[in-house]
Amino acid sequence: MISPAVVFVAIFTFIPIIASLVLSFVSWDVITPPKFVGLANYAQLAQDQSVLRSFGVTLVLAVAIVVLQLVLGLGLAVLVNQRKHAWSKAFFRTTFYLPLLASTAAVSIFMGYMFDAKFGVINYYLNLLGVPSVPWLTSPVGAMVTIVAVTVWQQVGFTFVMFVAALMSVPREVLEAAAIDGAGPMRTLFRVKIPLISPSILFASVVAMINAMQLFDQPYIMTKGGPGTATTTATITMYQSGFENLQFGYASAIAIVLLLIILAITGLQFIAARKLVFYQ
């Protein structure tokens, strides 16, 4: 029964990972035959400041995206969960989840026009209010803030829906006991609800971090990794090395290092979860 899923994962996940691992030990430009170079690609990567900088940019963007996604998702879920009418809950669940269904590339192109420094709609209305134009995509800080905002706006629906489902599963008798003991809304949220839904928070944080560490579409389409290298992520560097410079061995080495970093971060999340996550 699970064989179709196993075959799918093997073809599109395990085999590409193994192929990337093998390619990371060779020098290959597609035109000439591959040449085994051992750990030379990794040695070059360790000294390549542009690649190391891209990993730093990736970590900064990922942390900002994950924190905002979790906080906003939980906040929206708490507010929607307090709605009394079922139709209003369904309306907000659909509304907040819809951006996630849109193509990331299409959203990035649209937002690129929206945040354009000269012709963007946002700066147009800011100017009408007497506010000078903001260099959303033409300054390092502005570009990073804009990419984080666009990414969180599109992906917050995932954590939102997950947290809504988790909050709905909190036993009513536990909430009633907290109310009888005199716990207010904030105390109930932080002392009762969040501990009970902590497994869902862990899952959401792990998935969000994995996705954020592979961020590509938004920075590549909206800024091309600029201005300068301010928003050049590890995946953009990997793409440029492989498909623009035809250094597929070096690009594979970057991919393997990125995979190891993601595995390490995920491992740290699970280690931290031993004391922060409570299972019923």
Rank of each mutant, 00 (worst) to 15 (best):
Q47F: 07
Q49I: 04
S50D: 11
F55K: 11
V57M: 02
L59V: 15
L61H: 10
V63S: 09
A64D: 02
V67W: 08
L70E: 09
G73C: 12
G75R: 11
L76T: 04
V78K: 05
L79Q: 04
V80W: 02
N81G: 12
N81P: 03
Q82M: 08
R83N: 00
H85W: 09
A86R: 13
S88Q: 12
S88D: 06
A90G: 09
T94Y: 04
T95G: 01
Y97Q: 09
L98Y: 12
L100W: 09
A102I: 11
S103H: 11
A106Q: 08
A106C: 13
G112H: 08
G112K: 05
G112P: 07
K118M: 08
K118I: 08
V121A: 14
I122G: 05
Y124W: 14
L128F: 10
V131S: 01
P132T: 10
S133Y: 06
V134A: 00
P135A: 07
T138N: 08
S139T: 09
V141C: 00
V141E: 01
A143W: 03
A143L: 01
A143E: 01
M144A: 14
V148W: 13
V148H: 13
A149T: 13
V150W: 04
W153V: 04
Q155D: 06
G157S: 08
G157V: 06
